[in-house]
Structure formats: structure tokens, C-alpha cells
Write a protein that binds this DNA or RNA. Structure first.
Lengths: 228, 228
DNA sequence: CGCCGTCCTTAACAAAGGTTAAGGACGCAA
DNA sequence: TTGCGTCCTTAACCTTTGTTAAGGACGGCG
């Protein structure tokens, strides 16, 4: 796969609204988000983890509609559009797989709308953490329910549509309830079952095939004991 | 195009979460929406107008993730999946056109998130009305900035993530400011420029090619006078 | 080593919107 | 015609969240 590697710092813009890029972006390390901005404010509409290709669907687009922004330091591989066009033409199987990826993204977006629309700030943040945890576990980056979090509290606020001050209050409350620890750019989910319950997290929408990522650490140990 | 016609009443569910439909749904008359529901509440994540195919992207999906619901009485045409599969295989041009449609839907979803996340209730409702107006004008269903609105105030609330009571307050305020009239299942935008300004409506995200739908009625009359 | 900028934290206050409740309009069906 | 159900409307009250402001921690850079 032909690719060019790129490094970016936190809050760098990898691709900007109005641009007409000639390659897609495969996220290797760190987090990316789609950011929508105007006078009314700024809003993160999705967060991407290593392994994702956030702008794959934009391949046929005349131009980008929104900004692709780094959350924390990031390493990406740029893959020329031509590569995917040929892939699409040559293999119906892969073409279908890419459609399924796109569909999963849409499902996430609708769920994100649901999250903003129906939950209060505490459950909203909890839900975002649940989603991040599961998606990171799928790619092996949160094996013990602990993962890197270069996000600022303002980033969290922009994702959950709350003010930065209230984001702080909310995190404090999650800490107070012993649900998560969040220190020195690391998040540790201390009580997975509790977090899931608070967020009413139902991971169907992620379209996972292997549901073992949803088990808590206790369950895992229990299973280990069973098989021993 | 092989199709079966179906009629539905308001709040009927055309396709349900978990189902595995074998045809796509072309909306002929009325409005459809994608509804996300759980114990935390219910949330409309997009609204579709005649000419749309809301579940086109779900073609490769193993099963539906959300509910497709009628807002007001509705007429749809069900087109077998096989038809689109052949279309995709036979014509790269049409295949690309369908990708672009899907991309426009994603853009709308991100904008919907932005709407919920950054605007207060009044601007949020105003923005939804702006989007509806433009999309209906594109298909010739709001020529004089007037269009059918079988929506209940609870529907509006579910779309804008506000309570039904506050939806009522908000509509009253739009009326008081002489921006819209909303009587007997008909909405008339009385002050298009004012509504656009209140909502900070920037229609780029809809990906329109013909921007004339964005002109207000006054501009239209002015242009008519010029050419006369 | 010290400065500066970014980020986190806290408090007091203000505003937006949710909840509950109750009455009224309207249309449909018996 | 009457009755019932859905929808709209309004009011009072309360909760959540936003805003502003100020201080403190921390890290990078000169």
C-alpha cells in the first residue's frame, strides 16, 4: 500500500474544510476528530482511533465539508485516492467491506446525536468514555481498561456539547463516584459496569462481531478461573 | 424500476431496528425520519423529504440499527435491493452518484450534531425549518416558502432535543417575531432572511449545485423586475 | 532558573430549559 | 350528538448548565 507518513501536534488541522485532498488518511497513532466550526461555536462530531480512516467516505467528494483535527500528538499515513479507486474497481468484496465501514460511521453519528439529545452531561461524558474504551479495546489499546487520553477538558466539552467548566464538574463527579481515574494524560476506567450503567451504554450500534470487548475485567478473570 | 407502493399513517414504523429488509424505500409523498429510541428517550436523527431514499446506505447492512418512521401520512415505493446491486455493478457513474448521495447524508448528520450542540432552542428550531425549506424547494414543494407540515410539536421536540413544552414556547416566539406562520398543518416562512439570520443558516453542507433555492421571495421578485 | 502560556479548578451568579399539571381546541368514531 | 383521545397552550416551579472571574498547577522555552 503506497503511503506517506505524517506527524502532527495536538489541535493541528490535518485536512481543512474546502480542501480537495488527493489522499485518504489512515490513523496510526493518537486520535483524530471531525470538527464543525462557525460563529455559533465549535463542535466535535466524531472521534477516531488508530486503525480508522476518517476521510475514506470523502473520496468521491468535490471538497471537504469540515475540519479533520488532531486530538493530542498524531501519526497518520496518507494513502492516495487512486489506490482505493482501483481497489474498489478490482474487488467487489473489498468494496462491500468499505461500504460497511461507512455504514458503521453513520451509525456512530446517529448514536452521537442520540447522546447529545437525550442524556444529561454526566451520562453523556460517561457514554463517550464507554465508546472510546470499547473501540480502543477492539484494536488492543485499552487491554486493562486504561488508555492514553491527550484530550483537554475543553476537547471533551466540544465533543459533549457542554461548557469547559461543566466538563470539569462532570469529570470530578465521575472521579467522586470512583468510576474513572483521569490523571497525567491517562484514563483508567475503574468501574466498567458502573460506567456502562450510568451511560446506559448499548454497544450494538458499533456493529462489533466479537462481543468479548464488552466484558468487564472481572468477567474476564471469572472466565479465566472457569477455564483453569 | 421495479417497485411496490406503500401507504402509511403518521408515526407508523416503515422499517424497524433489527429487521433485514430486502428492498430500499423511495419516499414519494410526505416525510420520513430516522428515530433512535431507548430507555433514555427518543431522538430523531434526520428528516427526509420526497425524492430521498433514506435507507439506501443500509443496502449492505446485516440489519437495520434504527427505526424508519413516518411523520404524517406517507407514500413510499419499495425497490428491491437487487435492482441497486445490478445498478452498482453495471454503471460506475451511477455508483459514484450513490456514494455522493451517501456523503451528503453524512454531511447532514454532522450538521445536525452541530445544530444540537451549539445553538439554543430558538436557533435550533429555526435552523431545522431553514433546512426543510431549502430541501423542499429543491424538489419543488415549497415554491412560495410554504409547505405541508404534518409534524406535531412533539415531533419537533424529538428532532431538536427539547421538551414538547419548550417546543411550544419556541414556536410561539417564532410567530411573535413574524418569522413563520404555522397553522393547520402548513408552515409558511414569513421572513426568510430573518429566519436564516436567526439560525445562522449556512447551506453549504447540503451540497447543492443550484443556489437559487436560497434566495428569498423578495430577491426573486427583484430579479423578475430586472428581466422585465 | 524563571517566565509565560495553557490547562485545571473553584465559586457565585445568571439563564435556559425541564417538569408537572391543568385546561381547552379539535377531529374522529360510535 | 356525544364522548374520547390527541394535540396545543399556559403557568409555576425547579434543575441543569452556562458565564464570568480568579487563582493555581504544570510544562516548555528562553
Amino acid at each position: 500500500m503506497p503511503a506517506t507518513i505524517g506527524h502532527f501536534a495536538s489541535h493541528d488541522t490535518i485536512a481543512r474544510r474546502g480542501e480537495r485532498p488527493t489522499s485518504c488518511c489512515l490513523l496510526l497513532q493518537g486520535y483524530l476528530c471531525w470538527m464543525v466550526e462557525s460563529e455559533s461555536g465549535q463542535q466535535i462530531t466524531s472521534i477516531h482511533v488508530p486503525g480508522d480512516m476518517p476521510d475514506l467516505q470523502n473520496l468521491p467528494a468535490p471538497q471537504l465539508q469540515y475540519d479533520l483535527v488532531a486530538l493530542g500528538p498524531v501519526v497518520v499515513a496518507f494513502v492516495p485516492h487512486a489506490f482505493f479507486r482501483e481497489l474498489n474497481a478490482s474487488s467487489p468484496r473489498l468494496s462491500r467491506a468499505l461500504s460497511l465501514l461507512a455504514l458503521a460511521d453513520v451509525s456512530c453519528l446517529r448514536n452521537w446525536i442520540f447522546n447529545l439529545g437525550t442524556r444529561d452531561a454526566l451520562a453523556r461524558v460517561a457514554h463517550l468514555l464507554c465508546e472510546l474504551t470499547v473501540r480502543l479495546r477492539v484494536v488492543g489499546l485499552a487491554k486493562d481498561f486504561t488508555f492514553a487520553s491527550p484530550f483537554t477538558q475543553s476537547d471533551l466539552a466540544a465533543a459533549c456539547a457542554i461548557s469547559a467548566v461543566h466538563a470539569n464538574r462532570t469529570i470530578q463527579e465521575l472521579r467522586r463516584r470512583s468510576l474513572v481515574q483521569w490523571h497525567s494524560k491517562t484514563i483508567a476506567v475503574a468501574d466498567w459496569a458502573g460506567l456502562v450503567q450510568l451511560a446506559r451504554f448499548r454497544p450494538d450500534y458499533l456493529g462489533l462481531r466479537d462481543p468479548s470487548m464488552l466484558d468487564g475485567p472481572q468477567t474476564g478473570q471469572f472466565a479465566a478461573q472457569l477455564s483453569a
